[in-house]
Computed example of a mutant assay.
Amino acid sequence: MFLLIVIVALLVPGGDLLAQCSLCTKTAQQLGEGPAKGLNNGILMLAFTPLALGAFLGWRWWRSQRVTEEN
């Protein structure tokens, strides 16, 4: 179920997500619109992996704690 939610969230365009710090924003403005969107997408892709991994590990820990409390 979690994987389905993640896939849907990635595939459904929800507008422009801004993932740039102030320095990256200034650099992207100088590059133009196409490269700026690519830079923004790259930042989002790099941020997704550790966040997804942390969420998965937290979910596994929560599930294991719930199972041990029931026994």
Rank of each mutant, 00 (worst) to 15 (best):
A9E: 09
F48G: 03
L18A: 09
W61D: 02
C21M: 03
L18N: 15
P35L: 07
M1A: 09
G58Q: 05
Q29G: 12
L11F: 07
L57P: 01
T25I: 03
L44N: 06
E70Q: 12
A28D: 05
N40L: 06
S22A: 14
R66C: 00
L46M: 07
L3F: 06
M45P: 00
L23K: 07
M1S: 11
G54K: 14
E70F: 07
C21P: 02
V6E: 07
L3Q: 06
G42A: 15
A19N: 12
L39D: 00
T25L: 06
L57H: 12
G14C: 06
C24F: 05
L31W: 14
A19Y: 13
A19V: 09
K37R: 10
L46C: 06
L4F: 04
N71P: 01
Q29Y: 08
R66L: 01
I5L: 10
I43M: 13
L10M: 11
A19G: 15
S64K: 04
W59C: 11
G58K: 00
I5D: 02
W61R: 09
E33P: 15
W62I: 01
L51I: 12
S22D: 12
T25Y: 11
S22H: 09
V6P: 08
T68C: 00
Q20L: 14
E70G: 02
Q20N: 05
Q65P: 01
P13F: 04
T25E: 13
N41H: 12
L23C: 04
A36H: 06
P35S: 04
L53W: 02
G38L: 13
L23Y: 10
G32N: 04
A36Y: 06
L53N: 06
A36V: 00
L23V: 02
W61L: 10
A36P: 10
G14A: 13
L51D: 08
V6Q: 10
L23E: 09
I43L: 15
